[in-house]
Design a protein around this nucleic acid. Structure first.
Lengths: 164, 164
DNA sequence: CAGGGAATATTGTCGTGGCTATAGTTGCTC
DNA sequence: GAGCAACTATAGCCACGACAATATTCCCTG
């Protein structure tokens, strides 16, 4: 058909976003893997570590990550087996259980985070001068606010919904 | 540990990117699904449709998408079963085969693309005034160029490597 | 032109995660 | 307090896709 549809500036814009995102994700994943973590596991670890008492109910963890509740059950299974987090019964509601970061999980995170920040700086924020970066972030914020699924996730933080 | 690590502006920046990307992807996927396509299938269809003769060797298709060669084999299996594309033997190299978009595949794409462009405009490009959009795209381009895996993929186009 | 190494597509096997069903728990209403 | 709807975590089942192994074909070198 019409070959030029794909030259539409809207298509180009999305292509740019997709490629930048994919490239960054790959760099992140490579570093996570050096430390024995998958991207999802890193996401879970950071979500828990930034929550009060380093813990979150399974449901809330699901709401704050890209996973369904059953997906959370499984990744928590794996990470519990690896000693990075553990389950704790909720005293006030016997249906719920908390996922809690262990000391090992926190120290793993400490190993990873400095390198992670370096990678962000090297491939993302450091690629732009401050004004340019501000422009980029303003634009992203605008898009994020427009597209953002729901506000909060019940009990803990008003933090962003989708992962990271 | 130190709660404030997560307030680092680099973390914030990545969080913005991730959330904007996730939100957009979800909108796209929802529309694709209305037309019976997964995101990967849309990616394959567009990649083929924008290639000479609406076809691509399996290997090149893999290089231009987010899939491995075996992944391409399988998605092409499914799409061939659905009549959207078909395989064609390569006359010059009996190891290779082409994936070719069928008429049904092209018309499916024609059904989808207008709505897809609308969604991009509604949730992404239309959220920003022209100057802001330019700033965003410049920044993304910078990051993309830095992070971009490899240049070209052999035979056909010098087009972008990762999907879309 | 015989042989060997590189390239190509496919298949087997496996890990991951979504959807749905399920069992246990809670809180509300009568 | 009994009944019932909503909620919570988990398990069964399935689709998807990566990795490694495999068969075929190509090309280059002697």
């Amino acid at each position: 058909m019409d070959q030029n549809v794909f030259d539409d500036p809207r298509i180009t814009a999305v292509g740019l976003l997709v490629e930048a995102y994919a490239g960054l994700s790959a760099r992140f994943a490579a570093q996570f893997e050096e430390h024995g973590l998958s991207p999802v596991e890193f996401e879970v670890l950071t979500r828990l570590a930034r929550s009060p008492n380093n813990q979150l109910r399974m449901t809330d963890l699901a709401a704050q990550t890209s996973l369904s509740t059953s997906g959370v059950t499984r990744v928590v299974d794996r990470m519990e087996r690896d000693g990075l987090i553990c389950r704790r019964a909720c005293p006030s509601d016997r249906r719920s259980s908390f996922a809690v970061v262990t000391a090992a999980g926190l120290s793993r995170l400490d190993e990873i985070l400095p390198g992670h920040l370096k990678i962000i700086e090297q491939w993302f924020t450091g690629q732009l001068d401050p004004a340019q970066l501000d422009g980029l972030l303003d634009g992203l914020r605008r898009v994020r606010d427009a597209v953002h699924p729901g506000a909060t996730a019940g009990s803990t933080e008003p933090a962003g919904t989708a992962g990271y």
